[in-house]
């Protein structure tokens, strides 16, 4: 698989505090990568390192296959756009002037794409309104427009829906999906709002205390979170035989546990197992959401 971004044992320490601790992650090309973690887990630190705002203490990362110590990394960053924490916009100018300023920073030959970009993020009618008078949602969209000025292949958005109202959240979601589908931009979204991420992401990376806990595709996650019945028995071999006979889909989790998918008649199953000489210890329904999946991964705690 081709990766836009890959990190290998990336660490960043602030004195004794380990903001990133040997983090290894892989962002596939074309994906919307949900970067999930609590506040202070290290999400923003990673984005700062990739953007070149800070230097790693140890470890490395590659952007489009180019290492962070390679001289070509600066040129690779031209293919990337980012909104780190708050949108980076001049408050005392208009949206148009902000975009033109970034065009100049990038050395674009003309301002031809400015109107199109403003329209794309829905800010075409802001006219002479100063950015300081924009709503938070409008600023976020302007921040994304600025990140898009260089027509990047890879966009990193740090908590893009924080503080937005419901309407703003919907607009932001649609914008990110359009960027991914219409412009084939790989998007990394860091967030702790899991419900919203689950509507967007095609890949997930779960970070805790600066380390990657798990990377998983949305399809794999869906399978993991699928509604099922968890059965605990004394012999899973006998359980498998019975389930095969009944024709139920299942997955053996451990020597004594299995997840059964589809509708299960508990009384019938227990009876069949009993007849096969298999003792049923417990049986309960399992229906994991992204939230509970995450909590199980990182061992609970607030803020996610």
């Amino acid at each position: 698989m081709d990766y836009c971004l890959a990190t290998n044992a990336l660490s960043k320490y602030y004195k004794d505090f380990k903001a990133l601790n040997s983090l290894s992650m892989h962002v596939p090309k074309g994906a919307i990568y949900g970067f999930v973690g609590k506040n202070g887990a290290g999400k923003t630190t990673l984005i700062r390192l990739i953007c070149g705002l800070q230097l790693p203490t140890s470890g490395e990362f590659t952007l489009y296959g180019v290492g962070n110590t390679d001289k070509r990394i600066d040129r690779c960053r031209r293919r990337m756009g980012a909104v780190v924490e708050t949108p980076s916009v001049y408050m005392d100018t208009t949206a148009r002037e902000n975009i033109k300023e970034q065009y100049r920073v990038l050395g674009m030959p003309s301002f031809d794409g400015v109107d199109e970009l403003l329209a794309f993020v829905g800010l075409e009618n802001t006219g002479k309104k100063k950015v300081r008078n924009f709503s938070l949602g409008m600023r976020q969209r302007l921040g994304i427009a600025i990140a898009l000025c260089g027509e990047p292949d890879f966009l990193m958005l740090d908590e893009p829906i924080n503080g937005l109202d419901p309407q703003g959240i919907i607009e932001m979601r649609e914008l990110i999906l359009r960027l991914n589908r219409e412009k084939q931009i790989t998007v990394l979204i860091s967030s702790h709002i899991l419900d919203e991420l689950s509507r967007l992401a095609s890949y997930y990376g779960f970070i805790d205390k600066g380390s990657m806990v798990k990377e998983i595709s949305a399809a794999e996650l869906e399978a993991e979170c699928r509604k099922c019945t968890r059965v605990t028995v004394n012999d899973t071999k006998l359980l498998c035989m019975v389930l095969d006979k009944i024709g139920l889909e299942y997955k053996v989790v451990s020597a004594t546990e299995a997840d059964i998918y589809g509708a299960v008649k508990a009384a019938d199953l227990v009876h069949a197992l009993d007849e096969a000489g298999c003792e049923t210890m417990s049986m309960h329904e399992k229906n994991e959401s992204l939230e509970t999946y995450y909590m199980n991964l990182v061992g609970g705690g607030a803020d996610a």
Partner: peptide, 12 residues
């Protein structure tokens, strides 16, 4: 205003 980031993150 954070505009310094816009310069550095595009490779200057």
């Amino acid at each position: 205003d954070g505009a310094m980031r816009n310069k550095l993150s595009v490779g200057h």
